[in-house]
Design a protein around this nucleic acid. Structure first.
Lengths: 218, 218
DNA sequence: TCATAAATTAAACAAGTGTAGAAAAATACT
DNA sequence: AGTATTTTTCTACACTTGTTTAATTTATGA
């Protein structure tokens, strides 16, 4: 049931999401957040207890639904494959597409959220702990699927390849405008449809290259 | 000629590097930096004018020598190739190896520096501007070399593939411990030798996959 | 050696920090 | 209706922020 304070709760989270995404946890003050939300300063602590709790709640808010959608996408791929190994490219697409799709079509809140994830992911302070906390169960499911798609590839190769995938994907969400500068406008950071088309084949080829390289050894 | 205050200058930069790398620009105070450096608080402003200038100087300090070494590595690859297109994998290795090598063998200051780069790179606030400022000329040289290595690949594909390379490489420097958790200890974030072996073939295969994919179209 | 410049210290500035408590207003429930 | 509960406001606390200023110490160079 919708409670009374839910509207202000959401206003605070929305404002916090936008500002944390732009300047990180320490770069934003509680007063800025509540000012942007149009509510009194004390309400941030009233609803969330502390700035840190507010930060956590912002990260958690979208993580759950997101992971459900990604899990569902993975299950669809696996169901289609039946007893055969699933197609690697489709597994990677199930992993990335729900994210890219929301960032492209979900409105500016999603863009903020993913930009925040991009910062958290690459910070020593939050990167290991928080990503593990919010995304590990799902990621382990995906890695298991990738292992089935590449039955002859050693685990070590799989994990490193996943690491590369993760880095490439997450940088995309930062939308720093770097590729715009480098390409003199030919490519745009915000064009996630371009990423959606290119990332799965790019990464899948990388995965397979590690496998082949390893099989050459003996 | 070595001036009188150079020692304290360096002490402040070293402390700033370590702390900025851990918690970012806003997560660190000038007093923390000078305390760690063992000097008076006012000296940070005496030598660098402002906290922001200190931050910039820390980023710039290692960028120059680093880019020189990478440029030299690229030139070596190109010289060996002569008039033929250079080998893609070796171009990528020239791009990444000087970084991975310093992080692995250059001492903890280099680890801090790269962790800082990892944060800056994925932040909307600094990512576009600063990376462009400090690394663009070199990156453009590398992209030109990659284009020669892949003469039939459209520019757009090259830029996106470089974007993926950049994300994968830079996440490595964050050393968040994520891959350690995921792999239950099989892989270690700090094992950059593993990255050095795997990243070039992984990325090279990705580049080639985009090319092939594009040629299939018509 | 001694004036000059550079480096360091200590103290203070005005502004901003996260958070808490008591009073006021708004809503819910019987 | 009127009591109880939730939500909002206002004010304040104790402390930290980046930066500056003036005084003091240290080293330089003729």
């Amino acid at each position: 049931m919708a409670k009374r304070g839910d509207a202000t709760r959401k206003k605070i989270q929305d404002a916090a999401e936008e500002l944390f995404a732009a300047r990180g946890f320490y770069g934003v003050t509680v007063r800025e957040i509540t000012r942007l939300a149009g509510v009194d300063t004390a309400l941030a602590n009233y609803y969330f207890g502390s700035k840190k709790n507010l930060f956590d709640s912002v990260l958690l808010r979208r993580a759950e639904g997101l992971n459900e959608a990604r899990l569902k996408a993975l299950e669809d791929v696996e169901r289609e494959a039946g007893d055969n190994p699933p197609d690697l490219e489709r597994v990677i697409d199930a992993f990335t597409h729900p994210l890219l799709d929301r960032s492209e079509r979900g409105g500016p809140e999603w863009k903020s959220y993913f930009a925040l994830i991009a910062q958290v992911n690459n910070s020593p302070e939050w990167g290991g702990r928080m990503m593990t906390e919010y995304f590990d169960p799902l990621v382990r499911r995906f890695i298991a699927a990738i292992k089935r798609a590449l039955p002859n590839t050693p685990d070590e190769e799989i994990y490193w390849a996943y690491h590369f995938l993760s880095g490439a994907l997450v940088l995309t969400f930062a939308e720093t405008g770097r590729i715009d500068n480098l390409s003199d406008g030919l490519c745009r950071s915000s064009d996630l449809e371009s990423v959606h088309r290119r990332l799965p084949p790019f990464i899948a080829a990388g995965f397979r290259a590690l496998k082949e390289r390893d099989n050459e050894k003996p």
